[in-house]
Simulated scan of single mutants.
Amino acid sequence: MLRRTFVRTGGLAAGTAFAGSLWQGAAHAVASRRDSPYGPLGAPDANGLALPSGFSGRIVARTGHRVGGVLWHPAPDGGACFPDGNGWIYVSNSEIPLLGGATAIRFGPDAAVRGAYRILSGANLNCAGGATPWNTWLSCEETLRGRVFECDPYGVRAAMPRLAMGRFKHEAAACDPVRQVVYLTEDERDGCFYRFRPAHWGDLTTGRLEVMCASPDAGAVTWRRVPNPAALLEATRHQVAEALHFDGGEGCHYSDGVCFFTSKGDNRVWGYDAENERLEVVYDASAPLNGVDNITGTPSGDLYVAEDGGNMEINLITPDRTVTPFLRVDGHPGSEITGPAFTPDGSRLYFSSQRGPRGDAAGTDGVTYEVTGPFRR
């Protein structure tokens, strides 16, 4: 739905909203709460969640507390859901130094926790990442010369570093099964937007890392190979002179031919039309969405964008240009929202408050939530 509307318009102009398209005006929309397809937010519940009518939330994990037999990790960050028979699995990263990694929670069909287990240990500042079409989790290290680890959410195979995907300050990943590439964001003030072309789709061991570059045609982009993705002395983002730079790349989500990604430094949501190789700004305003970070979406075309700080909201960007809060976490002023992910059937949304109500930098008070309700699918 998003791709069909996006590419139908053509004639995109750099630095503006999608002129004439479904997204026209979204870049400067200041939507009120009544504009939401779900209605206004209600009063915060016992867990501090302000939700629209018909939705309910619960806490499924807290840092330092046992869930499914394991201690839930500090600083929960990026996450994704995976099918598991008649249930599902939610995977969450831990963004702490040296002792980071990822943990999985297994849920039954009644949403009861059936167990939990580590799928990656001893990594460094595991921030966001992304799921693959072959049901693995790409856990990204947000550190100098950071790595991408491919992890098994089912806990059978050992996690493996995928060094061909580059050594840089990785943030998020999103797979494009049509063009058989993985898009990657970089959390630097002059970070780049990359795509990894594996030698064989489904095997990320070897391949070609490319960086998005400017084109003489306004709105269009090109891709150039990064000469040395694992260079010790020259950062990947500085190896190609024509590379485009983004102020703090964050979340990344692919849907129907468009890869959406966020940049926190300028509070923007971007859209890359992969079929026509054109880039545009989807959102560029200070309200209601402030502190853009992790991003996910639904088959209906709705985008859910988490705030890093701001007023601790997940905002909704709909295909009809509405930009509005979907939920808010009250009482966590020093935290950020991380890891939004829907179950395979789209009926439940998981996410975390990374530093919780105490807001300590070590993330020892993280809280992971589940929200259920009549999501548009």
Rank of each mutant, 00 (worst) to 15 (best):
S92P: 00
Y254H: 13
H73E: 09
R106A: 13
G15E: 05
R195Y: 09
F55Q: 04
A306C: 14
R376L: 14
S263R: 11
E188P: 00
L289V: 12
E336Q: 15
L138K: 03
Q24S: 13
F246I: 01
N311Q: 15
G191L: 00
T185C: 07
E307F: 07
F168H: 12
A26C: 10
V60H: 01
A50R: 05
I89A: 01
G207I: 11
A362E: 13
D256E: 10
Y283G: 08
N86D: 15
F261D: 02
R62I: 00
A61Q: 10
S94N: 09
G373Y: 09
F342L: 04
Y154K: 09
W137C: 01
R8F: 11
T185V: 05
Y350F: 15
Q180S: 06
D152H: 09
E188G: 05
T298S: 15
L184K: 00
S335C: 09
G291K: 03
V7R: 13
C81Y: 02
D77I: 02
W137K: 04
A199G: 15
S215D: 14
F342C: 02
L327G: 04
A29E: 08
A116Q: 11
G373I: 08
D308C: 10
E210Y: 03
R321C: 11
P83K: 06
L184R: 00
G79L: 05
G25I: 06
E277H: 06
R33F: 11
K264E: 13
R376E: 07
P52G: 06
R66D: 14
P299M: 10
H253R: 03
Q180H: 12
R278S: 13
D217E: 13
Q354N: 10
A46M: 14
R377V: 04
C259Q: 02
G64E: 05
G78V: 01
F351M: 06
N294A: 12
E307P: 09
G57S: 11
G57D: 06
D152W: 08
R58G: 11
T103P: 03
D360W: 00
C151H: 02
A75M: 03
L71I: 13
A199M: 11
Y283A: 04
D187H: 12
Q24A: 15
V7D: 11
L233E: 09
V113F: 04
L327H: 10
G366N: 04
T132S: 11
G310A: 12
F18N: 03
G20C: 02
A112R: 07
V181A: 04
S263I: 04
V30Q: 15
A102G: 07
H200Y: 12
Y194M: 06
H332M: 01
G366C: 05
G219L: 03
N311Y: 13
H28E: 14
V60T: 08
T262L: 09
E186R: 05
A220L: 03
A31H: 02
V282A: 10
V91K: 02
Q24R: 12
T296P: 01
E275K: 03
P340N: 07
G11Y: 13
G346Q: 14
G15M: 06
N315C: 15
G251D: 09
P344C: 09
D302W: 01
A14D: 07
V60I: 15
W88L: 03
V182R: 01
L279C: 03
P319V: 08
